[in-house]
Write a protein that binds this DNA or RNA. Structure first.
Lengths: 105, 105
DNA sequence: TTGTCATGTCCATGATTTTCGATATGTTTG
DNA sequence: CAAACATATCGAAAATCATGGACATGACAA
């Protein structure tokens, strides 16, 4: 059994950024938001909110979580904030997970 | 913008098993439990509970969620229930995700 | 059969997260 | 500058989830 520290109360530091991605994606609304993006597309908050059943402020909250987990990039241009998928981070993250599974499971 | 249905209130059916994996892994205690397993190792509930700060019934609860998400296999042998990582499912799942990211993001 | 052990389930409490409306901030436009 | 707009943040209510103790079940051992 692999133990990091004396018990299971904490995640090894190198797994923490990854753990954040999973937590961010562990919500149906956020999963659904991600699936909205076409390849390379950028969407602003209004566009996302307009196809959502949620209030605008709630969408904003979910976008913040996705952004903090590095899943989405964002850039403010004028009044609007544009979001797009952080492809390289997701590739790296899931590449590492797949690697881990293949070599350690 | 890719829309499944009229709004963002549901996940396309083909994504649902995957969404369940993310939800299951979106919790630190469950992430930590997974990291316990050595390559090919099987662990029973007592072993996992003994290195956890959580009560046995709570560990049981988390194991159930991981099992329902297909992340863990389980088999009852005598009094004990043994759990092990569903490697092939995780490989397939994260392989698909990586593929999706590489071709659609 | 009785006792013990490993685990699961139920229930009530507490903690966390989600949610929306109101308000605040910063930007463009008239 | 004032109005209109896009978004973020705050705060409180609602919903969901995690948690542990008590009890139930099922297996083995005496």
């Amino acid at each position: 059994m692999k133990l990091y520290g004396k018990d299971t109360s904490s995640i090894p530091p190198e797994w923490q950024p990854l753990a954040r991605v999973f937590s961010a994606l562990g919500d149906e609304h956020r999963q659904r938001i991600l699936l909205l993006f076409d390849k390379g597309e950028r969407l602003n908050v209004s566009q996302i909110a307009s196809v959502s059943t949620l209030a605008r402020s709630t969408v904003s909250h979910h976008l913040k979580i996705l952004h903090e987990a590095n899943v989405l990039h964002s850039e403010k241009i004028g009044k609007e904030v544009w979001f797009w998928i952080n492809r390289s981070w997701l590739e790296e993250t899931f590449g590492n997970v797949l690697d881990y599974v293949q070599h350690n499971c």
